[in-house]
Design a protein around this nucleic acid. Structure first.
Lengths: 200, 200
DNA sequence: GTCTATATGCAGATAGAC
DNA sequence: GTCTATCTGCATATAGAC
């Protein structure tokens, strides 16, 4: 039916605009234009900008989280799991290059909501933390606490995306093709880097 | 004279507000309140919000860059230099915890201006790049290209700051004291992590 | 230099016809 | 469900008195 189609068009348009400009930078007018409708109709389907934003934001996140949980609850050694997480994360980022910045903005705008959402989705860091600690005790990996490993891992994955406009200019003569090549190398480089750092 | 004092007060207030809320989120009214004056006077000293923002932003960056250049142009082995850069960067971040997010926002808002500013200040990555490549050829460090090493390094340093609202909740039961302890450990953990990963 | 008052413009949201 | 027209509020910026 046509009502569903319009709603879908709005969600799609909101996705594009929000992800590029963030909640503050996005304009309802632009979303309406992108969807080929007018502002009034936006508010007919979504009472407020805030509501539309949350729908979009948590819609995207919902696609990322299950994959991560699957990896951690599955079988395999810790290094293998780390490798799988890097691969999963990184390929998701490559397909959604503006996601990291998007998430970071929301982390600082409404952390409680985001934190609650992750819990609701069953993303449980304590489980991973125990896994790390056990591996350290067993001597499989070098001494490190989970928060440090987590910060290192996420930082390395995410940095090339949030820094892209500057990095591409400064390190790749502003050549987007070269930068995409660089991004594609990240998965291998990061897993190798981490393994060298962690495995005794 | 009193005009200088007022201008200084404005700059100080703008520092505080911009760094917390970014260019988009900051309000001229709030800056005026913080400085103990009114909006009209803001515009007397700074023609526009944009102008005031740039003054603040590049004022802060100007304090960080010289230290980095000094390290790279100085004597010492590559690992020592990396260790020094991590220390310099990290202590700067600890004193300016909202700087990373601030910079990231600007990277995406006006990358050309930022890129040009860094060049003007003499921050030259080609020099560092050659240093890395030489060390790789000599076999002092493992095979890695400069952009990858750079992304890894900056990512690890910066992540705990831009992710703090979420990380603190999820990994430290929202205890700010524990999180500050964690931040203080970063310098040592990162340099150790990098050395293990890079040195053969 | 500093203020009060006001202009200007824009963005989110609503009213109401069709 | 979809539109045009409009309201409301807020933020930047300016005018003009002191």
């Amino acid at each position: 039916m046509s009502s569903d189609t319009t709603k879908e068009k709005i969600i799609q348009a909101a996705n594009d605009v929000f992800i590029l400009k963030g909640m503050d930078g996005a304009r309802m007018q632009e979303i309406a234009d992108e969807a080929g409708i007018n502002k009034a109709l936006l508010h007919y389907y979504f009472h407020s900008k805030e509501q539309l934003f949350k729908e979009v934001f948590y819609g995207i996140l919902s696609k990322l989280i299950p994959g991560l949980i699957l990896i951690f609850k599955g079988e395999g050694s810790l290094p293998d799991k780390i490798e799988a997480v890097v691969a999963e994360y990184d390929s998701f980022m490559f397909r959604n290059p503006f996601l990291p910045q998007f998430v970071i903005r929301e982390i600082n705008r409404d952390p409680d909501q985001l934190s609650g959402f992750m819990s609701d989705k069953g993303l449980d860091f304590e489980l991973v933390e125990k896994m790390i600690n056990k591996a350290v005790e067993a001597g499989t990996i070098r001494q490190i606490t989970f928060p440090h490993l987590f910060a290192n891992l996420i930082g390395m994955i995410v940095m090339p995306y949030i820094g892209r406009p500057l990095f591409q200019r400064k390190l790749f003569k502003n050549d987007p093709v070269k930068y995409d090549e660089f991004l594609r190398e990240r998965r291998v480089v990061i897993t190798y880097f981490i393994k060298q750092a962690m495995i005794c």
